[in-house]
């Protein structure tokens, strides 16, 4: 929509209105930022600057593996989930978008059904599957589950990007001497880089933030991720050191914030793209 409503004053009023709606959230994030560096906060008001909240970086937490180990776990988890999801999704998205094979329509329908299907309800059975496969309490197991649960969305998004590539170009690649696989790799993939970037950012953030899966499907210290660690801290600290908790939280949140600041457009796109075609 290009026109804007009414007079200048209505516009100003609307902006103030939507800004007011944002206030609770803004306050919460501000608190997170300041509490991490404050001795104590009273509501939104901090009192006394300190860096001692960040002592976990060198001291670690009691009864927990070192923060670097946990960070490393989280990074590995997010990174492998991202690579797996992007790779599998761009393979399958390509096949669903561009290949004629028996079962294609059914596969596509399933992708869509799964896209809407609330996978959380399956956790109990997945727990059992992991147990049987011997993958319970392993990072690999959680990675596989996470990648699988996000795959329908990823496939759907990648399919959308592949749909946008001209058929002539792929035909040309085949005539020039490519197999379908070679055409996918040399001609199509380089032309959906924005899609790959968007899905990568999305799945990295989603993997980085994941709580439920590692919380349920791992139990050992060496498999801790930052989210599980923080959950533990909430349990232990509910009554005490909020400064430490917020510092750890901010530490955990940092990559998210950075991604958020630099890749907003991609993110907005992916959230819109994940529901592409629903604007009937």
């Amino acid at each position: 929509m290009t026109e804007h409503a009414g007079s200048r004053w209505i516009q100003v009023f609307l902006i103030i209105l939507v800004a007011l709606l944002c206030v609770p959230l803004v306050v919460m994030y501000i608190w997170l930022l300041e509490a991490a560096f404050a001795k104590q906060t009273y509501g939104i008001v901090p009192s006394g600057f300190t860096l001692s909240n960040w002592r976990f970086l060198w001291e670690g937490f009691k009864n927990m593996p070192s923060i670097w180990r946990i960070t490393f776990n989280t990074l590995v988890f997010a990174a492998i989930v991202t690579v797996a999801e992007v790779f599998f999704a761009s393979l399958t998205g390509y096949a669903l978008s561009r290949m004629k094979f028996p079962g294609r329509r059914i596969f596509l329908s399933f992708t869509l059904v799964l896209h809407a299907f609330p996978a959380v309800t399956l956790l109990i059975a997945i727990f059992y599957v992991l147990l049987v496969m011997g993958l319970y309490d392993t990072l690999l197991g959680v990675i596989l589950v996470k990648a699988a649960l996000e795959l329908p969305l990823g496939v759907w998004i990648m399919k959308g990007f592949f749909d946008g590539i001209s058929w002539d170009m792929e035909m040309s690649a085949l005539v020039d001497g490519c197999s379908r696989f070679r055409a996918w790799w040399e001609v199509l993939i380089p032309n959906i880089r924005p899609g790959i970037a968007a899905l990568s950012i999305f799945s990295f953030l989603s993997g980085w933030s994941e709580f439920l899966l590692p919380y349920i499907f791992t139990s050992s210290f060496e498999n801790f991720t930052l989210s599980v660690m923080l959950r533990r801290l909430i349990g232990d600290f509910r009554f005490v050191d909020y400064g430490l908790l917020t510092a750890a939280g901010l530490y955990y949140m940092l990559p998210v914030l950075i991604f958020f600041i630099f890749t907003q457009e991609y993110l907005l796109n992916i959230y819109a793209g994940g529901t592409k075609g629903t604007q009937i």
Binding site: C22, L25, L230, Y271
Partner: peptide, 15 residues
């Protein structure tokens, strides 16, 4: 408004 969605749930709960 996307920020809460990408904020790790644990941190969101702390806030």
């Amino acid at each position: 408004w996307l920020l809460p969605r990408i904020t790790p749930s644990v941190i969101y709960a702390i806030m």
